[in-house]
Design a protein around this nucleic acid. Structure first.
Lengths: 204, 204
DNA sequence: ACCTGAACACCGTTCAAGT
DNA sequence: ACCTGAACACCGTTCAAGT
């Protein structure tokens, strides 16, 4: 059979991607299989491979849209923030990040769990999307750093992002540890308060 | 056939666990399959299931020994540290943690990537092993906190652990972002320096 | 040119059947 | 009682064959 051409290659990719995103969020990584995606768009597995090469490539693409959604959430958080003070903006970013994970836990898991097989590299557009997120944090720290301290500022942005990510990541995997149960927002506040106190102390 | 009883149930478990650890480190999560473990100890898959119930349970057990190894590495780092100053000890812990990941990347990946299926909970001994690690950090912060600030101290320990973990985790997944490439030790030092500056500033 | 679906080499898991 | 291995219901991936 074949040559249905009900859809152009571009349409097909979009349909598959949308199906994959929906499966990702509903079923998590374990349910995101080539056969399931193909089934949902009404094409055979073969077509999926012809479209994306590999299931890993499809997942990378899904993660790309997750990064976009994350970026949008952070942008919106900044827009809504009622101040340009770094503490305020970063706290708003953190809250938006936590909220994003709360709303889309499975997509967030897949974003950070997925690893390409040994020899393979993430595409350049992927790093650009990551960079955009970091630039957002970096920019909000501007008031705390002199013009000749761009490197320190970039490093601080990265450290904050790592810290927040570590809190969320360990919390979600249930490996934050033990009974007591400080909450994610608690730990985040502790991180930000102390880290900013450190930044301001050193600035003096 | 069967009833070989060449080995007791306990011996069998130990053999399987050892085989699984070796596969985990050599091949990573993708190679750690029931058939492979069974093959290496010379028994059938059925026996493995009779021993561990589920492959997930075997992996949890493997992760338990990874947590033990991590604990040992940190203990050794503290023993070797030439001071009890929190900054020094925590830096030594961080270096040991980074070194551990460097030496056993696949086992570390499995430790933090593995998630039990939806309804299942990690066993209690697992949380105890995690708690032991946190207690180590917590204890080393004692000089910075008054006796009635145990909660703050515990929170600080957790935040540091999350921060370090976030740095290592994003670095390993290639998602730390972008060209510049601050190294893991660089970011770790930035985290510790600023965070401790914050702790000391607030103490005053 | 485009698409299919059978085929290959794997998975985790179960369980009747053997000793 | 203990262990096996075939069987079930899946995987990712490929590719000859069809239109």
């Amino acid at each position: 059979m074949a040559r249905r051409s009900d859809h152009s290659r571009g349409e097909l990719r979009k349909m598959a991607l949308a199906a994959a995103e929906s499966i990702a969020e509903q079923e998590g990584a374990r349910g995101l299989t080539a056969r399931e995606v193909a089934g949902r768009i009404g094409y055979s597995v073969g077509t999926l491979y012809n479209l994306f090469g590999t299931l890993d490539d499809l997942i990378v693409e899904v993660n790309g849209t997750t990064l976009d959604a994350l970026y949008d959430s952070l942008m919106e958080a900044r827009r809504k923030a009622d101040s340009d003070e770094p503490e305020t903006v970063i706290a708003a970013f953190a809250a938006a990040y936590i909220d994003f994970i709360d709303r889309q836990p499975n997509r967030w898991d897949i974003l950070f769990e997925h690893k390409l097989p040994k020899g393979r590299r993430l595409p350049n557009w992927y790093f650009e999307k990551l960079g955009r997120l970091l630039t957002l944090l970096d920019g909000s720290l501007a008031p705390l750093f002199a013009a000749d301290q761009k490197r320190d500022r970039a490093r601080a942005a990265r450290v904050l992002w790592c810290g927040l990510h570590g809190i969320c990541s360990l919390a979600r995997s249930g490996k934050l540890g033990v009974v007591t149960g400080e909450s994610v927002p608690d730990l985040t506040e502790a991180l930000l308060t102390t880290y900013f106190a450190g930044l301001r102390a050193r600035a003096r």
